[in-house]
Design a protein around this nucleic acid. Structure first.
Lengths: 339, 339
DNA sequence: ATGAAAGCGCTAACAG
DNA sequence: CTGTTAGCGCTTTCAT
């Protein structure tokens, strides 16, 4: 049972390769191939289960039917969930996904873009690290659609899907203030990315309005989680006046909860807690944790549908879509009113 | 700045395509190309940053430098973590990953294997659903290396990396018994796969030794988590005699903890808990949950190194490696002695 | 040591 | 409406 080629089909049916190719590519009508022949070829193809080689096709057309997905780390539950949803929708349209974890590393990301590019990836979904503006702009100039999400690069004019970070953080902080908390920390990963800047800004705005003092801790990311947990623990221990904390991302929240557990702090009596992103751990923590939930389904849906649209229409001329989605503050017990 | 081809390099340097190709493929020595020319070509290539097209190469050689990774769901934290580790090691050896979520669906998996195959994926890492023996055997017959993990197919003779499920479950169950628990349930996803069978068997063995009665619940998987949580809740409510439960997988455990929380059961006073797989949620749950931790790093490492070895050596003749790794029972407060 | 040439499987321009 | 043909960029055999 050797692998069939278009040529074999043509031979078997005593017609030309071209005809088969046209039919395969759905241009039979405009090439004025008879209904009857189309039918005959299609039936035969179905019978023998022929599928044209995507590689040969790719070499010829420069298309691959592959979408490149670049996120900070595929093991992060936020990105993993998004990846899963995107995979599903892309698959239905005949696209496969090659994914890469950038580690938020500029050089690595540049190299990854190269790698994907030489595989003729048709479109890119990127949660970009800083510093890759040039490379992404080159993709766009080459007519390849790029959709950013989670964060964006202000200097790059292309579609993106993000959440309203500033408002979300401001809202959560203000909520803590209204609950009676006064010494509210913001703990997050150090980052120059838009989403973290927005969260920080929202936090500061809410505090300033009330004339409260900010306490900010930036965690240096390391793969050794223990080190980060210890960092948070030391920060909390060094600032006993704190009565509440807002975590700027799920990993920060997860490190923070571990630190809090180690310090045997009672939530919310000793320390109220809110974290960005929602996850099982927040629901199941000893005191369920109030979370700023991102609309993950909606993000994934928007991202992939924008990309598929660009891919189908080839309309890279259309104005970039800049989608900002709302988050939802899921109030749980970790942020009940201070006594 | 047009994209270079081998031909261009050859022209620029006034030599033949062949020479360049040989040098590119590291066979210069055995083709007896002069040191000096090799040096000259390599320098030029470095200077202009030339990289040969993997697609053209793929069409010609039938190799893709891509590894297919098929797991139940990439959003599952266990698989996402493994995927991440595998990605890293594969990348260093010049391999990219295309991933697919099988949903544990036999037909979908067959189709996915087809898709990967026609892309000339060089090797497969599969956490297989039942019923794909034939397809995998065909891959093997075609000389393509396949490494299974998490579970395996007894009828397929190929490498696999799993944990000692039976012993792990037996050990954990016995541990509960020794702590004084007598009515121990096993809650898991319904599955005919080796790993679940092993876990079930271990559980039953430990109970039988002590003449205890088994309480088994098989959760039907649905994407609607709420439905599954409710199922567990009803089961627990219907069996008030239970004093302990062993969850057969992390999702079961996570559903279970939610059910337990909803029922306001105290752990371990009302119900002791142990779960397969370890995760933040178990560490951070109101009563930290004893977990059977899989050696994730080691699994990923074994899987990818076995595959890379097969890929490098082309030694698909070598006997299949059947690796069984040990788990670690991480004892936490959810399983302290019954009063 | 090097070069010419065939061919991987497909698409699409062009000529009938 | 159909057939011929020229590549896409690379590897590799065979002849030089």
């Amino acid at each position: 049972m050797k692998k069939l080629r278009i040529k074999d089909i043509a031979n078997d049916l005593n017609i030309s390769k071209t005809a088969v190719s046209f039919i395969l590519n759905g241009v039979a009508q405009e090439k004025r191939i008879s209904e009857e022949l189309v039918e005959r070829v299609e039936r035969y193809i179905r019978e023998v289960g022929f599928r044209p080689s995507p590689i040969a096709r790719g070499l010829r057309t420069g298309k691959s039917n592959i979408i490149g997905l670049m996120v900070e780390s595929i093991s992060d539950p936020f990105f993993a969930t998004i990846a899963r949803l995107i995979e599903n929708m892309a698959y239905k349209q005949g696209y496969r996904i090659i994914y890469c974890s950038t580690d938020n590393d500029t050089e690595k990301t540049k190299e990854l873009i190269n790698v994907l590019r030489e595989r003729n990836v048709d479109g890119y979904i990127i949660s970009p690290p800083p510093g890759v503006e040039k490379e992404i702009n080159e993709l766009i100039r080459a007519g390849l659609p790029v959709v950013m999400f989670d964060r964006y690069l202000p200097k790059v004019k292309t579609d993106y899907v993000v959440i309203d970070n500033e408002f979300s953080a401001e809202n959560a902080t203000r909520y803590l203030i209204h609950q009676g908390y006064r010494n509210i920390a913001f703990i997050t990963f150090s980052s120059s990315l838009t989403q973290m800047k927005g969260r920080m800004k929202g936090y500061r705005t809410a505090l300033k309005e009330e004339g409260l003092k900010p306490y900010v801790m930036e965690i240096d990311f390391t793969p050794e989680e223990k080190v980060m947990v210890q960092g948070v623990r030391e920060f909390l221990a060094a600032n006993p006046k704190l009565d509440a904390v807002l975590f700027g991302a799920i990993q920060a929240g997860s490190c923070g909860l571990k630190a809090i557990t180690q310090l045997k702090l009672k939530v919310p009596q000793d320390l109220a807690v809110i974290s960005f992103d929602d996850h099982d751990i927040f629901e199941l923590f000893s005191t369920p944790v109030t979370a700023i939930a991102q609309p993950i389904d909606k993000i994934a849906h928007k991202v992939i549908s924008i990309l598929l649209e660009r891919l189908e229409e080839g309309d890279n001329a259309a104005a970039p879509k800049e989608i900002v989605l709302k988050t939802k503050l899921k109030v749980r017990k970790s942020s009940v009113p201070a006594k």
